Amino acid sequence: MKRRLLDRLLLPARVHTVEQRAPRLRHITLTGPALAGLAWQPGQHVRLQVSAAPGAVDWLIGTLRTYSVWDYDGENLELIVYDHGDSSGPGAEWARTARSGDELRLLKPEGDFTTAPADYHLFAGEETAQVAYGAMLRALPAGARVFGRLEVDSPDERLDLGQDRNQDWDLAWSYRRGRPADSALTLVDAVRALDLPADPGIAYLAGEARTIQLVRRHLVEDRHWPRRSVRTKPFWTPGKKGLD
């Protein structure tokens, strides 16, 4: 692999397995000695060096893309990457073409979009939020009270977030059936219809930036939640690059 200035901060790894989980979801497991014993909190992400970059930027860092961690067992790091379909960027190209044995480099897990103690937890988002949510939900203590509304295009794009093993969770999906995922008022309406306890819990809102803003506004302005009780993680929005 080409050497770059940032390589001393990056961990070498290789693709172990690639599995197509759904038409637009690829489960990619990374492995290698450098991945053993990492500090990771569910909800955090990693930044992968997926390709070269123009000119001097390539010499410095290459092209980095951010992916939520689905799971980590102390040795192998699992990603589930969503393919937006209309993207032709380096991250999309890497995710579509990754094969077992491919080498790459990545930064250690980072980020503060993680769970915190609360009387109950509210999750809302679309396809791109499911990976972080799966890890976060698995990390909650037994008996944690959970509400969740997720919107995906079709049922085959749902991930197993553990709802079948936790019958007390109020976790449900709705389906767009081809409608745009940005500024999704249907997801806002689904959260608005939730019969939540009178006192705020903690909300985790991830995915498309405009939809996150709308759900956050509902919680803060309509339900009078403190802003500090709403944690957000915008992953994408139409026409903009560089969101984590």
Rank of each mutant, 00 (worst) to 15 (best):
Pro12Tyr: 06
Glu126Cys: 03
Gly242Asp: 06
Asp222Ala: 14
Asp102Gly: 06
Ala198Pro: 04
Ala95Arg: 02
Ala209Gln: 11
Arg231Trp: 08
Val15His: 03
Ile80Cys: 13
Val57Arg: 09
Gln44Met: 11
Leu205Cys: 09
Gly242Lys: 00
Gly239Glu: 10
Arg14Met: 13
Pro238Gly: 03
Asp244Arg: 14
Ala118Tyr: 03
Lys108Asn: 03
Pro90Cys: 11
Ala124Cys: 11
Tyr175Glu: 12
Asp222His: 12
Leu161Met: 10
Leu196Thr: 08
Ser154Asp: 13
Val69Met: 02
Arg216Gly: 05
Pro234Met: 12
Lys233Gly: 07
Leu107Ile: 00
Leu187Asn: 01
Pro200Glu: 01
Leu243Tyr: 12
Gln213Ser: 14
Ser51Lys: 00
Ser100Asp: 03
Asp156Met: 03
Gly37Phe: 09
Ala181Pro: 00
Arg227Leu: 14
Ile28Cys: 05
Leu48Ala: 00
Arg4Phe: 08
Thr29Cys: 09
Val152Asn: 04
Ala209Gly: 06
Val188Asp: 01
Pro23Cys: 10
Ala184Cys: 13
Glu126Ser: 07
Ala203Gly: 04
Gly43Asn: 14
Val146Trp: 01
Gly62Met: 04
Gly55Tyr: 05
Leu11Ala: 06
Arg231Pro: 07
Val81Ile: 15
Leu159Met: 13
Asp83Ser: 03
Pro54Asn: 07
Ala144Gln: 04
Gly201Glu: 03
Ala193Gly: 06
Arg65Glu: 14
Asp7Ile: 12
Thr97Val: 13
Thr211Glu: 13
Trp169Leu: 02
Phe123Asp: 00
Arg21Ala: 15
Gly62Ser: 04
Asp119Asn: 08
His45Phe: 15
Pro226Phe: 13
Phe123Glu: 03
Tyr67Met: 07
Asp112Trp: 08
Asp86Pro: 02
Ala139Leu: 09
Arg176Ala: 00
Arg145Ile: 15
Tyr204Ile: 02
Glu127Phe: 01
Phe123Trp: 00
Tyr133Ser: 11
Gly148Pro: 03
Ala144Asp: 04
Lys241Cys: 05
Val57Glu: 14
Arg105Met: 02
Ala34Cys: 05
Arg165Ala: 15
Ala34Asn: 01
Asp73Glu: 10
Asp168Pro: 02
Arg228Leu: 10
Ile61Ser: 13
Asp160Ser: 05
Leu79His: 02
Ala95Val: 11
Arg138Pro: 03
Leu137Ser: 06
Gly85Glu: 07
Ala22Asp: 11
Tyr204Asp: 05
Tyr67Leu: 09
Arg177Ser: 14
Leu77Trp: 05
Val50Asn: 01
Tyr72Val: 12
His45Ala: 11
